[in-house]
């Protein structure tokens, strides 16, 4: 395992929290109730907290004199390695919940295994983050039930979101060359081994929510290679605005 392998592996994890945190940050003040607003902001805050832990460690690993903010704000689109799932827009509350739930279940399983990493830094971050993610998963899972088994309208909306976002779930279990090396060294988690449990778990939850499990065999991929959706450019334009417009300043 090279240093570069580890760096790329870390981006693959941290960028998910970064981009999902950013998406949730768009919602602040616009939620269906004050309580959900507060809860989604909490999740966003947790995710950014995790990003900072990963990026501070990444900054240590990188040879150049980089800061967490250089990593967050000054990479090119292709250098972000987040999953396509987390960059999907806040179409409505159903999409927000389904995107969150599909990610949270995966995130929890990943962190569970990452606690056993040979890398003490990753171990530490995983141990701290998993408590937060347990709460995220409960929040999104509960809302999935409410929306699925709520009214006709909510059922139809959440079913639509499930069908549309399902195509992004397969990518959660893709492994890059860099990942492969890090897994082999015992630092990373082989996400391929989580796949069956993941689908069993979300299928069960969807059934409990009286929703249909999509049957499509066609999935989308590319985020892990830095080939994103059309949404990504706009996310970055917003996120990087200050750093691009006013370079090399302290804030």
């Amino acid at each position: 395992m090279t240093n570069e392998n580890l760096i790329q592996y870390l981006y693959g994890i941290a960028d998910n929290s970064l981009i999902l945190g950013q998406r949730l940050g768009e919602l602040c003040g616009h939620g269906p109730t004050l309580e959900t607003d507060i809860a989604l902001t909490n999740i966003s805050l947790d995710l950014f907290g995790q990003v900072r832990s990963y990026f501070q460690y990444l900054a240590e690993l990188s040879k150049d004199d980089l800061t967490e903010d250089d990593l967050a704000f000054l990479r090119k689109e292709r250098e972000y390695k987040n999953l396509l799932l987390v960059e999907q827009p806040n179409t409505d509350f159903a999409y927000i919940i389904v995107r969150q739930y599909f990610f949270d279940v995966f995130h929890y399983m990943l962190l569970e295994k990452l606690q056993d990493s040979k890398n003490v830094n990753l171990q530490g971050i995983a141990k701290k983050s998993i408590k937060e993610v347990a709460y995220h998963q409960r929040f999104s899972g509960d809302w999935l039930l409410r929306l699925g088994d709520g009214t006709e309208e909510s059922k139809q909306k959440v079913q639509q979101a499930v069908s549309d976002l399902w195509v992004f779930t397969d990518e959660l279990f893709h492994v890059t060359k860099d990942d492969e090396a890090v897994i082999k060294a015992g630092h990373g988690v082989d996400v391929r081994l989580l796949k069956d449990d993941y689908y069993a778990k979300i299928t069960n939850q969807l059934k409990q929510a009286t929703l249909e499990v999509p049957e499509t065999k066609y999935f989308q991929k590319g985020g892990k290679q830095g080939i994103h959706s059309e949404h990504m450019g706009y996310i970055l334009a917003d996120m990087q605005f200050m750093q691009r417009a006013y370079p090399d300043m302290k804030w």
Binding site: G31, P32, T36, F93, L147, G150, T151, E153, S154
Partner: peptide, 8 residues
Amino acid sequence: NGKWVRDA
């Protein structure tokens, strides 16, 4: 826009 969510 949140009405359907609260109703659910």
